[in-house]
């Protein structure tokens, strides 16, 4: 841990417990996510990694029976304080979901929606500019620049997911959460998204939940291993994959369970 202190912690989770009704889904999660890095969360299905991810932008708030205790600090500010404006929070913490979910609108409108509700663009030119840069950052511009006004749902799965990434970065967040962004995609589209994630980390802090250990190894700098609602081990990706401290991590990584 001393080694890592040189890097700046963007998100600090302190003793996060999550309950769905009577069932406890997360047990005292403490972890740090560093700025401008890709942090991967791995673990078997149902281990709570997605639940934790959704705590970072308070997406769990929409689930009535979900109760969360503990603190998550973003830039040393606890987002679970009672007076926090979740709209402001989500402006800062974008999210990309497992299944591509573009709005059933044109490609242009998909990107322009976020900036327009936050009043980011002053006029049409500025909006065009935001749409273009967002799509460029998401490596989709060249493929769609001639059909910006066609429906976003008409794109291929991989393109749709990149459209969702472009949508997330259009409002210029600081953190992007990705919930198994490639699980619905073919290997070629996956490779493209992974490449994209790598290039995005210079401007954003990225947290990615993934089922694929090879993906975690390829894209992330740090990895956290979840099992049954607990964070078993967290550290440098290289260390986690080559020489984990915990035997359970070792077993999972070598494919003995999960």
């Amino acid at each position: 841990m001393e080694l890592e202190n040189k890097r700046e912690a963007k998100v600090i989770s302190k003793n996060i417990d999550v309950f769905y009704g009577d069932k406890q889904a997360l047990f005292g999660i403490d972890l740090e996510i560093y700025k401008n890095e890709v942090t991967a969360l791995i673990g078997p299905s149902g281990c709570g990694k997605s639940t934790f991810l959704r705590c970072i932008n308070r997406m769990n708030d929409v689930i009535d029976i979900c109760k969360i205790t503990g603190e998550i600090e973003i830039d040393n500010f606890n987002i679970y304080k009672p007076d926090v404006d979740v709209v402001r929070l989500r402006e800062k913490v974008g999210m990309v979901f497992q299944k591509p979910n573009p709005f059933p609108k044109s490609i242009y409108d998909n990107i322009a929606y976020g900036p327009s509700i936050h009043g980011i663009a002053k006029d049409k030119n500025e909006m065009d500019q935001i749409v273009e840069t967002s799509l460029q950052k998401a490596a989709l511009w060249n493929e769609v620049k001639d059909r910006l006004h066609e429906p976003g749902t008409g794109l291929s799965g991989g393109q749709q997911q990149r459209l969702c990434i472009a949508r997330a970065i259009s409002i210029n967040p600081e953190i992007i959460l990705m919930d198994e962004p490639c699980s619905a995609l073919d290997p070629i589209a996956t490779a493209k998204i992974e490449e994209l994630i790598d290039s995005l980390k210079t401007s954003f802090t990225i947290v990615i939940v993934t089922h694929s250990m090879s993906q975690a190894a390829r894209v992330s700098q740090r990895t956290g291993f979840f099992h049954l609602g607990k964070l078993i081990e967290m550290g440098e990706t290289e260390k986690i994959f080559k020489n984990p401290n915990n035997t359970m991590t070792q077993d999972y990584i070598t494919g003995r369970f999960g």
Binding site: M59, V87, M95, Y113
Partner: peptide, 12 residues
Amino acid sequence: SIREGALAVGAS
């Protein structure tokens, strides 16, 4: 997923 998409870009 549509609701989540909108909420995630900061729509109220």
